[in-house]
Design a protein around this nucleic acid. Structure first.
Lengths: 215, 215
DNA sequence: AGCATGACGTTACTTGCGGTAACAGCAGTC
DNA sequence: GACTGCTGTTACCGCAAGTAACGTCATGCT
């Protein structure tokens, strides 16, 4: 066998093994939650711990690999909604609905993505400040900010504005979705409409109620 | 000594001891981050582990007590901004600024509040879905929703709408603030103004840029 | 006085997890 | 046949959460 062929063979088998391990890890994490142990994952994959560590370095590496897979999948479906041919309001509603439908359909995946394995990652004085959100939120915020910057005319300082709005809107969607998922106070469609209304300035347009200063 | 007096004495000394322990825990958590060990906290307080466990049950109990203190303090200052005598836009900006100034001034406290100690808390199928946000976010969302419901005229279904908006606005503030704290892409005042603009419907009002469908 | 209660405090232990040697089998290569 | 490099194992270390068992000292009851 040619040395190049051998190298690629090894690489492909290694990648395939990695995929198998990731799928096993997925099953365990979705069953046991974020506190799934490396032993349990190894057992599910039919092997023992050191092999996991050879493939992923440490627990953070495994969890990052898992999270990346799911995050990519979710972002892809969000991009599809964001690129649908319709007016802005409809696209915003479609994107919100896609996100909410996803977390509703796979709450365990959602939980896992929002609870990243926090590596020590010490810097300077004790630990790093900032960077507390899940990577999924950051990526969604950045991508939405880019989309806004590309498509919406915001005048001067448009880029900064667009990024702020991207992260802000994503945070709004996330927090409202999280609360909704826990309490289910209304239908998904109601939630989508209310959030879109919020972005459409209905808060600013509403009148005060009598008795005291309005919010 | 009367038995009643004795009981109250014991109670007050116990409460005082508890406060001392909480202050020691605060110092350690703010120094070492959320991964502070019970041993370290006990050492800082000049005692040993079992006493901590007698007072707080488990690590989650200690962390919950700590978080409640800080959350109460932050909520109090937010309420002050929310109740200031000014028009709605100014109050919104003041509240955003108060929040951002707080997390900017005490990022370690902020980090701790957003990374609650996740108890096992197993329910039904493996683990509970929903409830992934920090309690601070939930409380802020609920309180803001209540304020909106009390003061803004939203017509029918106002209560549901107000709660959705409360959680959504809090999430927007949180995500944008978290990103801003990590990257510092602009001044605090700029961020406040951009977020208020977002809530005031400037996204809906903006024109499309040429070339492709607008967001 | 003598004794019981109960909080404060300790040392020493168990359990479980992340992570790491150190070693064994089994291709294919020179 | 020795060498390399992968797969896999067992057995261990370090460390943190949480607990058991014990000692001590002030207080109140009899």
């Amino acid at each position: 066998m040619d040395i190049a062929h051998r190298a690629t063979d090894q690489q492909t088998t290694a990648e395939q093994r990695r995929r198998e391990l990731l799928e096993a890890a997925d099953r365990v994490v979705l069953r046991d939650g974020p506190k799934a142990s490396m032993n349990a994952i190894a057992a599910e994959a039919g092997i023992t711990k050191p092999i996991l560590y050879r493939h992923f370095g440490d627990k953070g590496g495994l969890y990052r690999a898992l999270a990346t897979r799911h995050t990519d999948a979710l972002l892809a479906s969000l991009r599809a909604s964001l690129d649908a041919p319709a007016d802005r309001r409809r696209r915003v509603e479609a994107t919100l609905d896609t996100y909410l439908a996803s977390i509703e359909a796979m709450p365990q995946v959602y939980r896992f993505l929002m609870h990243p394995a926090e590596e020590p990652h010490q810097t300077e004085q004790g630990f790093d400040v900032g960077r507390h959100s899940a990577p999924l939120l950051r990526r969604m915020g950045e991508e939405l900010g880019q989309v806004i910057a590309e498509r919406v005319d915001l005048g001067p300082a448009a880029d900064a504005q667009a990024r702020i709005w991207g992260h802000g809107i994503v945070g709004m969607m996330h927090a409202a979705g999280d609360w909704w998922l826990g309490e289910r106070p209304c239908s998904r469609a109601d939630l989508v409409k209310s959030l879109a209304d919020l972005l459409w300035g209905r808060l600013a347009a509403a009148d005060d109620l009598p008795g005291g200063p309005g919010f």
